[in-house]
């Protein structure tokens, strides 16, 4: 009997050792519960509070005080969506979204309030219809022996073979215009793969960190992001990189890397920014949420969230547009032919 008693005690002890449950925190699927969950999610996980406080005085606690009275227990779903969307817009971040089944709340003023500086009909006058395609890249050779390469999205993959073949095709050109206007981002691996074709030495182009806790200042030590030179064909002639306000997210990081290479000149408008890698989450009612979680800084630990200024500022003029000319491409050609 003593053996059974000891054994029972052993089994009971094992079970008691692990009795505590790790469950989700209480979150009511009510307008108030969803509001609280969203506010707290941002408060604990969003990565630019201090920077945005310095830039335009964002105070997330004050935002709570201002929006909480707008939430009522019987408010309609669409009303709740509008209030929550407006609250997220206070962050002034294109990477912050709220997704319901019928709409996406977004903040797009980072390009809506600025000149487009891109017209795909006019771009067609340069790219033509017989342009070549290498992975996600479209390219041609302009009349003055300048290569023109357009990368509309870093979400579209490009392979090392694509890049080597393309640069081999363009090897006889005097210079290269690399156009990333209206490129809203995508995969950083594609951006790094392309950037690696423009440097002959390994360079620390940026730093990245992530949140380690729920406090606004709980960040890991910044770790270097390096661009290593590609083993394939590397471009050794002058490059003009064209940007506009819609060059966003991974494109912003790409421009940040490219601007540090000696043969590269950035021309056009300021980029749109978006330097925080976004994470996804959700609310108790099932709406998806996206927010900036991991900040990327420049090589001097400067913020890139609100964009990168070009080396040479050029806007498309209405006169040129009326003549079917892209002012920024024309200025880039002049620069490369000077």
């Amino acid at each position: 009997m003593r053996t059974i008693l000891y054994f029972s005690s052993f089994i009971l002890s094992l079970s008691l050792l692990a009795t505590s449950c790790i469950r989700e925190e209480d979150m009511d699927n009510t307008p108030q519960g969803n509001f609280e969950a969203l506010w707290r999610m941002m408060d604990e996980r969003y990565c630019f509070f201090d920077y945005k406080y310095e830039e335009y005085g964002l105070d997330w606690d004050e935002v709570y005080e201002r929006y909480a009275p707008l939430i009522t227990p019987d408010m309609p779903t669409k009303g709740l969506f509008e209030v929550l969307g407006n609250m997220l817009a206070e962050l002034r971040d294109g990477h912050v979204n709220l997704y319901s089944g019928y709409d996406v709340a977004r903040y797009w003023k980072w390009y809506e309030d600025y000149p487009a500086n891109f017209n795909d009909s006019i771009q067609r006058n340069y790219l033509g219809f017989d342009y070549k395609i290498a992975g996600g890249l479209r390219y041609t050779v302009l009349d003055d022996n300048i290569a023109y390469v357009y990368y509309p999205s870093f979400s579209t993959a490009v392979g090392d073979g694509n890049l080597s073949d393309m640069f081999n095709e363009l090897a006889f050109c005097n210079g290269l215009i690399l156009d990333v206007r209206n490129n809203g981002g995508g995969l950083l691996t594609n951006a790094n793969k392309l950037a690696a074709r423009f440097t002959n030495e390994e360079l620390t182009t940026a730093y990245m960190c992530h949140k380690t806790g729920t406090g606004h200042n709980d960040f890991s030590s910044p770790e270097a992001i390096k661009v290593k030179p590609s083993d394939g064909i590397r471009w050794q002639k002058p490059v003009v990189l064209l940007t506009n306000r819609s060059s966003y997210s991974a494109t912003n990081d790409f421009v940040n890397a490219m601007r540090q290479f000696p043969l590269v000149t950035v021309m056009g408008d300021c980029t749109g920014g978006g330097s925080g890698m976004p994470f996804s989450s959700e609310l108790p009612n099932g709406w998806a949420v996206r927010f900036s979680a991991c900040p990327v800084y420049g090589p001097g630990m400067e913020q890139l969230e609100f964009g990168i200024e070009p080396d040479i500022r050029v806007d498309m003029t209405s006169e040129d547009m009326a003549r079917g000319l892209d002012t920024i491409i024309e200025e880039a050609r002049k620069y490369l032919n000077r």
């Binding site: 079970s15 050792l17 990565c47 992530h210 949140k211 890991s220 770790e223 890698m277 994470f279 991991c294």
Partner: peptide, 30 residues
């Protein structure tokens, strides 16, 4: 870690802080 992306771990090789000691206090499993 709390807000760490797999891009940091596997593409950039920033692996520090990804291995954790576990015991009954943080792994009450049975």
């Amino acid at each position: 870690e709390y807000g760490q992306s797999y891009y940091e771990i596997f593409s950039l090789g920033h692996t520090e802080g990804t291995v954790h000691f576990t015991s009954l206090h943080n792994q009450p499993t049975m």
